[in-house]
Write a protein that binds this DNA or RNA. Structure first.
Lengths: 140, 140
DNA sequence: GATTGATCCGATACTTAGTCTCATTAGAGT
DNA sequence: ACTCTAATGAGACTAAGTATCGGATCAATC
C-alpha cells in the first residue's frame, strides 16, 4: 500500500499534500518497476490534474529518501523501483517487469578484488540483474 | 588509436566512410568515458560537418559490435566507454572520468546466489563500479 | 477556527537526448 | 569509370527532464 511511502515522507519532514498522496497511491498500485512516463500516463488517465513537474519532483524526493531507486533498464530507459531504504540490488524480470530485492550476497568480495587489481578506490557500485521471475519461467 | 575501431568496423562489413573515420578519431582522442553530447560538441568545434544523427548511428553500430559500451553514470546520464568486445565490467573514476576494465572476478557466484534465493533465472547483469583512479587518489 | 508564511502546486516555456525521414552523396566491388 | 547500395546531413519531430513563477495549500501557532 501507499501508506508506507506516506509515512516515510511524513517522517522526512515534508508536507503530505494531496498530489503526493495521489502519486503515492499510483506507485503502490504498480507492482514492479515503472517509469516516470508511466506515472504521468496513469495520472492523466484518471484526470488527477497533477502536473508533470510534480511527478518528477516527487520521484526525486523519494529517490533522495531511498524509498525508490533508479534502475537503468537494458534498453537504456530509466525506471524506478519502490524499495527499502537499505543498500541492496534489484532483480528485474525482463518479461513482466516484476522486481525482487537482493541484499549483498558476496559483492563486497568482488569490489575488493577489482580494487586490488586496478588500484582504484571504490566508492560505490551499481549492480542490476535481469532475468525471468518464477511466474514467467513457468508460464513460458 | 582509432585504427582499432576502424579495423573492427571494416571487419564487421560496413563501409569505412569519412565521417566514421573522423568520429572514430574523436573517440580515440578521449581517454575514458564520453557522452554522445561530448562527441557532438567535439565535432562541431572542429567544424567537421558531421550530423548529430551520424554520431548516434555510429555509436549504435559500435555498441552492437561491442567496441563501445553504454554506461550509466551515477547522475543518470548515459555515457559510452570504448572497450574490448568480451564480457567485462567497468570501473569509472568519478573524479577524472578515466575507466578501467575488470573481468569477471567472482560475480558469477553472486548471480548464482541471487538466483537461488529469488527463484529468478538470470539472463544478464550489469555491474558498474565508481571510485577514484590511482592518479586522482594521490592528487587529492 | 482564523492567520500566516514557508512549502508546494500546475502551467508552461525551455533544454537536452535521441529518432525518423528523405533527397543527396559517396564507398567499394566490378 | 560505373553502378548500386549503404551512408550522409539537414532538419523536423518526439520524449525526457528542468526552470520559472504567480498562485494555492498545508500545518504550526495563536
Amino acid at each position: 500500500m501507499s501508506d508506507e511511502l506516506l509515512r516515510a515522507l511524513d517522517q522526512a519532514g515534508v508536507r503530505l499534500t494531496g498530489p503526493r498522496r495521489e502519486i503515492a497511491a499510483l506507485i503502490a498500485k504498480r507492482n514492479g518497476h515503472f517509469t516516470a512516463a508511466d506515472l504521468i500516463a496513469d495520472a492523466s488517465k484518471r484526470r488527477l490534474g497533477v502536473g508533470r513537474a510534480t511527478i518528477f519532483r516527487l520521484l526525486d524526493l523519494l529517490a533522495e529518501q531511498g524509498l525508490v531507486e533508479r534502475v537503468d533498464l537494458p534498453d537504456g530507459r530509466h525506471a524506478y523501483v519502490p524499495c527499502e531504504p537499505s543498500h541492496h540490488h534489484h532483480l528485474v524480470c525482463v518479461s513482466c517487469g516484476a522486481i525482487a530485492e537482493v541484499d549483498d550476497c558476496g559483492i563486497d568480495a568482488v569490489t575488493a578484488e577489482a580494487s586490488r587489481r586496478s588500484g582504484f578506490s571504490i566508492e560505490s557500485h551499481r549492480l542490476e540483474l535481469f532475468g525471468r521471475c518464477p511466474n514467467c519461467r513457468s508460464a513460458n
